Computed example of a mutant assay.
Amino acid sequence: MKIEIEHVSKKIKDALVLDDVCMTLESGNIYGFKGVNGSGKTMLMRAVSGLMYPTSGTISIDGKVLGKNMAFPERIGMLIENPAFIDSYTGYDNLKMLASINKGEVDISRALETVGLNPHDKRKYRKYSLGMKQRLGIACAIMEEPKLLLLDEPFNALDKEGQEKLSEIIRDMRDKGSLILLSSHDKDELENLSDVIYLVDSGRFKLK
């Protein structure tokens, strides 16, 4: 997979949240975004996912322009901001419902076990701790073995074991050829995991 971001800008009211962003992203790499809250990291991920279209510029995936030749990238997994799950469903049932939308073959139990959750846990989502909710969000992002994985602050609320497990998952997916975008306030995790790091400030992205 090859993503080409060409002169992408996004203006919301009078604020320029993405400012002439240009970059090329390729499979088999982890691209780290480093910047403070509101710098533009999440907004670029939303643009790459097709959840938001830029005010100007284009985002192409393998030669197809988002918003023109395709609405969303194919085989995408993402954890952006707060994932929405149904409070009265178990973790397994939440993922089962979401998997049914795409009608693909998904090993839900494996995805849950990979992030350290028990697929047979009968607790409802509303009873989950913050860490369990984050793990479920990660399981949702990876369960369909995406070729494009967007992770916005995925280490939030995870204990040390959870952080180590997630780092292992991210590296494994990179090694299998996925293209991964990662933002994190954890400087060490970001630098240890990323093959390429972009410094983000006021909507501008520059290579570290």
Rank of each mutant, 00 (worst) to 15 (best):
K41A: 11
C22S: 15
L51A: 11
T42Q: 08
L44V: 07
D14C: 00
T24K: 13
R46S: 06
M70E: 01
M43E: 14
N29A: 09
L16D: 01
D19V: 01
K68P: 02
G57M: 07
Y53V: 10
V21I: 07
N69A: 14
G35T: 12
S56N: 14
T58E: 13
D14E: 14
L25N: 06
A47G: 03
S27E: 14
G40N: 10
D62T: 00
V36G: 04
L18V: 06
S49E: 10
M43H: 01
M52Q: 15
V48E: 08
P54E: 11
T24N: 13
K68W: 00
Y31P: 12
E26T: 14
I61K: 03
G50C: 08
Y53R: 15
L66N: 03
D62H: 00
L25G: 03
A15T: 13
M45S: 07
M70K: 03
K64N: 01
V65I: 15
I59Q: 05
N37V: 08
G57S: 09
E26A: 10
D14K: 13
G67P: 09
Y31M: 07
L51R: 03
V48C: 06
P54M: 06
V48A: 09
G28H: 08
G50D: 09
K34N: 09
E26L: 00
K64H: 03
T42E: 05
S49I: 11
N29V: 00
T55Q: 09
A47D: 09
F72K: 15
S49H: 06
R46C: 05
L66A: 01
K41R: 12
G40F: 02
V21M: 07
D19H: 10
F72H: 15
D19K: 12
D62P: 00
P54A: 12
G28N: 03
M45Q: 11
D19C: 02
D20W: 05
D19S: 13
G28R: 03
D20E: 11
S56Y: 08
S49A: 15
M52V: 15
S56K: 15
L16H: 05
D20S: 11
L66M: 01
P54Y: 08
S56C: 14
G40S: 12
A47I: 15
G67A: 10
M52N: 07
S60G: 02
S56I: 11
T58S: 13
V36S: 13
T55H: 07
L18H: 05
N69H: 13
G67E: 05
T24S: 12
V21L: 07
G35H: 09
T42I: 10
D62W: 00
D14S: 13
N29R: 13
V17R: 01
G28M: 04
N37S: 15
V48P: 07
T24F: 02
I59P: 10
C22P: 04
S39Q: 04
V21S: 07
V48Y: 09
M52G: 02
L44Q: 11
K64I: 00
V36A: 14
V17L: 11
D19E: 08
G63S: 00
L18F: 03
G50N: 04
L25E: 05
G40V: 11
I61Q: 04
G35V: 06
G32H: 06
V17Y: 05
M43N: 06
G63C: 00
G50K: 04
